[in-house]
């Protein structure tokens, strides 16, 4: 996953206004990374965008409905010059917040060949909607975390990839990839 998917955080603190908190170590990673990107689409920004979407246009109406249920979209991405610049402990600090029964890991893919780990977590919610989503994509020289806070229906998830600064997550299918 390229870091060009980029992304901010001007609070510049460690806490996002969301369901999970970014580990303090991530700020240190930003200082070490060759490139780091933070993107923050908080509820205010999403509401602002939603105001300008039309109910008459089918695509815009769909996007408006999607945005309406969201509280925030946050992307944090790091690209390092060499391997080993971040540790498993850095990622574990995030994973430790994604525990059952509130969170469920629905995808866990590890590539032994490429050293890539992709994990997707859903926040448990009543009914047909998910209460939130976290994607972790860890490669030897890249680390990307996407957090989506708010109600999302599973059928809307595919529409979010490639929009709002969210990278498209393509799960590996080739040999050498083993699902956990």
């Amino acid at each position: 996953m390229r870091i060009a998917i980029v992304v901010l955080a001007a609070t510049l603190g460690t806490a996002w206004a969301q369901d999970i908190k970014m580990p303090p170590a991530f700020d240190k990673l930003a200082a070490k990374a060759e490139e780091s990107v933070d993107v923050t689409l908080d509820s205010g920004m999403l509401q602002l965008g939603g105001k300008f979407l039309s109910d008459k246009d089918a695509d815009e109406a769909k996007a408006k409905k999607l945005i309406g249920g969201l509280k925030g979209i946050y992307v944090r991405s790091f690209e390092f010059a060499k391997e080993g610049e971040y540790s498993a402990a850095d990622v574990d600090a995030l994973r430790s917040q994604l525990q059952p029964p509130v969170w469920s890991r629905v995808v866990g893919v590890t590539s032994k060949k490429g050293g890539e780990i992709t994990e997707v977590y859903f926040k448990t919610s009543n009914g047909a909607q998910i209460g939130g989503l976290v994607v972790i994509d860890a490669e030897p020289k890249e680390l990307t975390v996407v957090s989506i806070s708010g109600a999302i229906s599973p059928e809307d998830l595919a529409d979010l990839g490639g929009q709002f600064g969210i990278p498209k997550v393509e799960l590996p299918k080739s040999k050498g990839k083993e699902a956990k």
Binding site: V6, V7, L8, A9, A10, T11, L12, A30, A33, E34, E35, S36, V37, D38, V39, T40, L41, D42, G44, M45, G165
Partner: peptide
Amino acid sequence: RPLVRVRSR
């Protein structure tokens, strides 16, 4: 509101 921050060493 902060929207994007990009650092490139």
